[in-house]
Design a protein around this nucleic acid. Structure first.
Lengths: 329, 329
DNA sequence: CTGTTAGCGCGTTCAA
DNA sequence: TTGAACGCGCTAACAG
């Protein structure tokens, strides 16, 4: 196995000094065209690839960023990470992974570790959408999915009001007028925002919910429960907005087991487009996708900008869109 | 914001040379005890943290490894990554993420990129268990989940024969004697190995399958189909081994919709312990866990050993275990 | 246009 | 036991 060629090797092969070689390869101005070409050929010939450590030692930038996840392998982390990795990779920055497991102390240690490795910035990918305690770092930080509680911190999050709105609008467009809503846990800002968005859409159409929405746990059982209650209450309804796909799954199963046809009798729309549910269930669920990989990508871009000295303050909300399935006509 | 203290700063503060300071902080022999203490205090006082780039520039090692995933966010990648990140993090190695998306060309580029960043080794985390084309890298490589087709390459994988065996044994222990099996896709080594293991266990108990197992797609529908066929065929059976949790899910739904009680009439055991299914379904599934995070951890350890000059050749199979649920009595 | 010089922060000889 | 000197590979002044 050959030792890697260094810039000095390239320079020697091209018959120039290392300084000239460096300039030539970086497209710097003060080099003759012929010389530049010669250096370039020598470089490719020797399969020269610059030593990143040496470069960053002198430039002071490492072209690497730290990715702190609250929960590697969580439900939402992955798509965000994919988007971020993509974006950063295309800027040929390395992504250094750090899993904090939702443990604040561990997060602090991981942060110190990353900083000691001279990362240029930190991307905080949360798996829980609620605003979180800010990270105290000496380098730029951008939050994805969950914002920091300090609204001045840079963050890219889901536009939940819009998500709630388009869920309702989709049902209205299907001609439904008696719409119920299964809400998630009340201490999630996401639940409240989605509800607000849905309510707005209904009000603009001159409607109200078939029954005042109730908050409950993010579990299939809660969806089942609300569906059953709706049926026994006798309140007429022809559509249900469920604030997560799991809730929708439970809701649908309860409806079907009572002989209600979906979507003919009752249309159901979910939230999150959590891929696996689609694959598991017999019927593809119509749902609102949160555009998570876009969130990851934009957060990454913001971070790169901040590192380049152009910080973007504040929270940016990314809009999702309805993914058509078979549960809304 | 203060500039980070360098070794020279520490040395100056302690009134010694950088050489001595370096030795002192590294517990090298040729330093007086008193001097060492003085240097240490100076270091903590200045919050000195070594510059990783500079270190690696001179040592030639970066204390970072590349993690190439075939599918970031795939079904199996995450737990493996968690185990690996944990293990590597405790050796204070950084993990550099690279998502190849199952694209060979992209994988090659990512590999080159990682090598240009002087990673000390590569961990290949596959999401598909079939043996894969080896990576041609100038540094140590260890494969996790899927082995390389070259059996001499270092890999840590699931012991699928054992998994199949303990699934069957669990049903036998529950007193079941008429056991059917829903197999996955035939071109998956995992399907064939699990089947072989299950068959062995039955044969040792002097039994055969209630019906000769059939291979099919890894989808709920296939589980449903086999269950329905079994019921209509009239073959008596009191238990089913499903080679994935999704198959089990389908199987159970078909059984229940025909009025068969699970586990009273028919016990069902799955494979993979794919967390989400447990949470989604009304009944917690009894299943075989593959111990994926252990696979990740061991692969990481192997990689570290290889980097330290103690390569472990060949394939290591990690055993899983049955996770009790409510579908086997 | 090109080459020389001087570090970046650190580990490691080798003298003292 | 200590420290001066060198070099890892590269970029950025400056001088030619």
């Amino acid at each position: 196995m050959q030792k890697r060629a260094t810039l000095a090797d390239v320079a020697a092969a091209a018959g120039v000094s290392v300084a000239t070689a460096s300039k030539a390869l970086h497209n710097r101005p003060r080099v003759g065209a012929a010389t530049r070409e010669r250096v370039r050929r020598a470089a490719t010939q020797l399969a020269y690839v610059p030593n990143a450590q040496a470069q960053s030692l002198v430039t002071g930038r490492s072209s690497s960023i730290g990715l702190i996840t609250s929960d590697l392998g969580g439900m939402f982390s992955s798509p965000i990470m994919i988007g971020a990795e993509d974006e950063l990779g295309s800027s040929s920055s390395t992504v250094i992974l750090a899993n904090a497991r939702g443990d604040a102390a561990l997060e602090k240690r991981k942060l110190d570790f990353l900083v000691s490795r001279n990362v240029d910035g930190i991307l905080v990918v949360n798996d829980n959408p609620n605003p979180r305690i800010p990270l105290d770092a000496p380098i730029p930080v951008v939050y994805a999915y969950a914002a920091s509680v300090d609204p001045a911190d840079s963050a890219v999050v889901v536009d939940n009001v819009h998500a709630g709105r388009i869920a309702a609008e989709r049902l209205l467009r299907a001609g439904r007028r008696h719409i119920a809503l299964v809400a998630g846990e009340p201490d999630f800002e996401a639940s409240r925002d989605r509800l607000a968005g849905s309510r707005e859409a209904l009000e603009e159409a001159g409607l109200t919910f078939a029954e005042e929405p109730r908050f409950g746990p993010w579990q299939a059982e809660w969806g089942r429960r609300v569906a059953r209650d709706l049926l026994s209450s006798g309140v007429p309804f022809d559509a249900v907005i469920c604030q997560s796909d799991i809730l929708a799954q439970g809701c649908i199963s309860a409806l079907i087991s009572r002989g209600v046809r979906v979507p003919e009798d009752v249309a159901v729309i979910g939230h999150d487009n959590w891929g696996i549910i689609t694959r598991l269930s017999a019927q593809r669920l119509t749902t609102v996708d949160n555009n998570l990989s876009e969130i990851g990508a934009r957060a990454a871009r913001r971070l790169m900008d901040a590192i380049d000295g152009h910080p973007d303050e504040g929270i940016e909300a990314v809009r999702g869109e309805v993914v058509e399935g078979e549960t809304v006509p």
